[in-house]
Design a protein around this nucleic acid. Structure first.
Length: 504
RNA sequence: GCUCCUGUGGUGUAGUACGGUCCAUCAUACCGGGUUUUCAUCCCGGCGACCCGGGUUCAAAUCCCGGCAGGAGCACCA
């Protein structure tokens, strides 16, 4: 060690006196990014609303857009009508969710299905120029040929013949599965996924947005590549499962003489509590009635998180802290919740919620002749939310949780030390005099019945209780004292208050 | 099978391009303590990691070689 130091002091003395390592804050710089000239895109399939996983794409892309004064394109990749067909309502849901998550709407919004003429035109160019061809082989036949690096018989036909087949693909003359358009690549490429990859295929099913006017639809690798070029996208950030897609698209760009955008990847994310996010899986389970809708509290959708009361800034902070690593990771909702707590705690008012209520009669006779009529407690302990909640004591009957009756000397929070004796709570002191347990409570006259729903794994647990009837505004996120955060759901016909548990 | 990616504490993450700043950053979780009229918040302390093996070097988390482990793609899905 000493020898190393002396060697160092001779050759590289400044190395001995540098600062301690700090953690980099925020996202690392984008490669080759010019401020003001960055164009990013977020391209979901509108087969359902956004999930927690999509939030990563929104958060990171919009953060980079902000860092570089760039633009962000929201593009609906809706070119599949069979496997993951578009859900018409999802388009506007996604636009709104994007806006909610990023705090502003996308700079440009486009639907691939509206851009079909562009894609078909490029496909036509590709065939006319000879770097694309119509392949009539079945998928299975082609796979065999591809694996042995041999061209299929369709590959070397004349351009005129290809154009003729292209026309009949487009006018419905060829059945679904009867032909695809392939991009010519080097068949000796070591990566089998890249050899003469398919760019467009036939779908005769009706598209929910544009109907039956197109018989040929581009696949993701082609549509996305063309559209990125058309929009001038400079940086693509996508999952690393799409690495081969980048390589395929780069080959296509070479044919067209274009430069491929800078591309960055992230790894797969699982959340302990939810597993992975499959929009189509959720969709079928909602249709089967297993979940009440996309905002069912058990689902990892943005709509469910929003309904529970997550703050979009917490979601953003969380994803930006995770950054852009290519590692496959498994994270816990607890981490997201702690981001959320730190944002919402200071602005959530407190309310008392009593489960398993036990009625006691308050006896303050040894302190005052007159019964106590009013109690005033803070909306928030730190005064971040200024003001008080005014409680009307009425006949002096109060409620506490049965669980809190284990001790017979307790402190009613913000009120009095009491001794429990049968059904009486006898006031011993107004001031806090000892270390006895502090419990939350409520005058009976302030109580209104309520339910608290929380998701435990894949089930919903509903607790009945009584909530403090003081400014219960629909949609507000409040902190139930000694319970946790919850959001007030729309009031039902029976007047009952429904609370949806957020987290502790 | 072919192709590609990734391995830093319980979970994430910084540092790796150009080896010394690193007895390795920060957060979260957990444990302990303090403040507080909530089991909330806040504060303090603790805990605990460079996948393995070689090599190069005065010096390796960082470079090289070889293993091992995990993940992804090879769809007429996105």
């Amino acid at each position: 060690m000493e020898a190393a130091r002396t060697a160092l002091s001779a050759t590289n003395p400044e190395a001995l006196s540098r600062q301690k390592q700090q953690k980099r804050i925020g996202l690392k710089p984008l490669p080759n990014a010019i401020k003001g000239a960055v164009i990013l895109r977020f391209a979901p399939n509108p087969n359902g609303p956004l999930t927690l996983g999509h939030a990563r794409g929104v958060a990171i892309n919009s953060q980079y857009a902000e860092m570089y004064d760039g633009k962000i394109v929201l593009r609906f990749d809706d070119t599949d009508t069979k496997v993951k067909p578009p859900l018409p309502k999802a388009y506007s849901w996604i636009e709104k969710e994007f806006e909610w998550l990023s705090g502003k709407s996308a700079d440009i919004i486009i639907r691939a299905s509206d851009r079909m003429p562009v894609y078909l035109d490029y496909a036509n160019q590709m065939i006319s120029s000879g770097f694309g061809y119509v392949c009539r082989c079945s998928a299975a036949e082609f796979k065999k040929l591809r694996d042995s690096k041999t061209p299929c018989t369709c590959r070397n036909r004349l351009i005129e013949e290809n154009l003729k087949d292209w026309d009949s693909m487009n006018n419905g003359g060829i059945e679904e599965g009867g032909a695809v358009v392939r991009v010519k690549t080097d068949l000796q490429l070591p990566n089998p996924a890249l050899r003469d990859w398919p760019a467009l295929r036939i779908q005769h099913t009706s598209h929910p947005m544009v109907g039956e006017q197109y018989k040929v639809w581009p696949l993701l690798d082609f549509q996305s590549a063309i559209e990125d070029y058309e929009q001038g996208v400079t940086h693509i950030i996508r999952g690393k499962d799409l690495m081969d897609s980048t390589r395929k698209q780069t080959l296509l760009y070479q044919h067209f003489g274009w430069n491929y955008p800078e591309t960055l990847y992230w790894g797969r994310v699982k959340v302990h509590e939810f597993g992975s996010f499959s929009t189509s899986g959720m969709r079928s389970q909602i249709e089967d009635g297993k979940y009440s809708g996309w905002d069912d509290a058990r689902l990892p959708t943005i709509s469910a998180l929003r309904r529970k009361g997550f703050d979009p800034a917490a979601l953003r902070d969380f994803w930006i802290e995770l950054g852009l690593t290519q590692k496959d990771i498994s994270i816990s909702m607890q981490t997201i919740e702690s981001f959320n707590s730190s944002i919402i705690d200071k602005k959530c008012e407190r309310r008392s919620f009593i489960r398993g209520a036990k009625t006691l009669h308050l006896d303050s006779s040894s302190f005052s002749k007159e019964p106590i009529m009013k109690v005033s407690v803070a909306r928030h302990p730190d005064g971040s939310e200024i003001g008080n909640r005014e409680w009307d004591m009425d006949d002096g009957s109060i409620l506490i949780e049965e669980n809190d009756l284990k001790n017979n000397k307790i402190r009613l929070k913000d009120f009095a030390d009491v001794q429990i004796s049968e059904n009486k709570a006898i006031v011993e002191s107004w001031e806090k005099t000892d270390k006895r347990q502090i419990v939350h409570w409520l005058p009976s006259s302030m109580a209104i019945s309520a339910t608290l729903t929380r998701n435990k794994g894949d089930s919903l647990v509903i607790e009945e209780g009584l909530i403090e009837n003081f400014e219960l505004n629909e949609g507000a996120v409040i902190q139930l004292e000694r319970v946790g955060f919850a959001r007030i759901e729309p009031v039902q016909e029976d007047g009952k208050v429904n609370l949806l548990f957020l987290h502790g």
